[in-house]
Computed example of a mutant assay.
Amino acid sequence: MKRSTLGRALVLPTTAALAFGLVACGSANEESGSGGVTINGAGASSQEAAQNAWRTGFLENNDGTINYDPVGSGGGREQFTTGGVEFAGSDAYLDDEEVKAAQERCGEGGFVEIPAYVSPVALITNIEGVDSLKLKPGTIAKIFNQKITKWNDPEIAESNPNVDLPDTTIVPVNRADESGTTENFVEYLKAAAPEQWPHEVSGNWPVDGGEAAQGTSGVVQAVKNGSGTIGYADASRAGDLTTVEVGVGDEFVQYSPEAASAVLDVSERVEGRGEHSFAFDLARDTTESGTYPIVLVSYLLACSNYDNADKATMVKDYLNYVVSAEGQKVAAEQAGSAPISDDLRSKVQPAIESIGSSNSGS
């Protein structure tokens, strides 16, 4: 399955990250093992709300400063592999060249790569008189490829026998900007409906026509303000719009945190990248009951070894908090993400515990 490569060209200076820092101190923080140090991170904007929640929660009981600059996945990976930040967030796992760069940067022990943020991507609709809708993968592909153009098309009706579908023109709404959400949605279409979706995977929308909108908020507004519209957006932004139940095997699945995170549990880990890399080729074409395959999985990147022992401890403590049940719950409440499973948590925690320093002091 093709690995996403979105945003590789976007790189901003790490100094910009300082505007996004959170600081905590006081007697409650004396129990921290990381001390009053500063660590910098940069990367995926999809993680921004979750990073804010994680940093706030972590710094309630830990002394120090954590900065996160939502510069974009490509910028975060670049800053991490060149040593500009201690950790990074990315909506795609490292490619082969980046793996080599990360290994060179991190040295002995290699790098840590763990999925920490899972977000279902909802198909949102605004069709007069229709408050529930089921669509198979091939039908979804034909709609967004503009091969099915009416909501009462027989193929849609077959999956919705009890729905009064109107003779209304379908208006597909896509992102106008290069987008990780687009890339993950297109990756799903390519895997689940390859015959109906002939386009290559990219963060840029490949089909001309339809309606384009800037950013997630733009897509949501275009769907809400239109008639017969359908678009794709982070599920946390769906609001009161009707969302599609997606065909998976012989059933139709509504997105939920449990269904979204279940995809990782049925996906294959990418091998040959080091023992602390937990990159997954997502099973977009899964037929496993109860899974929702249209998801964005965002990773955290760190080194197993840092020159500064205090920073190493801070990074390890912070990542442990992020993947903890508490950290995942905070992100779910504040950012609408899907908590990772206990099984996956148990697998990635040894990688986090590997983080340390070859130096005894700072």
Rank of each mutant, 00 (worst) to 15 (best):
K2H: 11
R3W: 11
V23H: 15
N29C: 14
N29Y: 04
I39G: 06
N40S: 13
A42I: 09
A49F: 10
A50W: 05
Q51P: 01
N61Q: 12
N62K: 01
D69Y: 14
S73G: 04
S73T: 14
G75Q: 08
G76P: 06
R77C: 03
T82M: 06
G83F: 10
F87N: 04
E97I: 11
Q103N: 12
G110F: 01
V112K: 05
I114T: 10
P120Y: 08
A122E: 03
T125I: 01
N126G: 02
E128R: 13
S132P: 00
L135N: 03
K142F: 00
F144K: 00
K150T: 13
W151N: 07
E158Q: 13
T168F: 02
N174P: 02
A176Y: 01
T182F: 00
F185V: 11
Q196R: 05
V223N: 04
A238C: 02
G239V: 06
T242W: 03
V244I: 09
V246P: 00
V263Y: 00
G272A: 09
D281Q: 15
R284P: 00
S289C: 00
S289H: 11
L301C: 09
C303P: 02
A309F: 02
D310N: 13
E326W: 06
V330F: 09
E333A: 12
L344V: 14
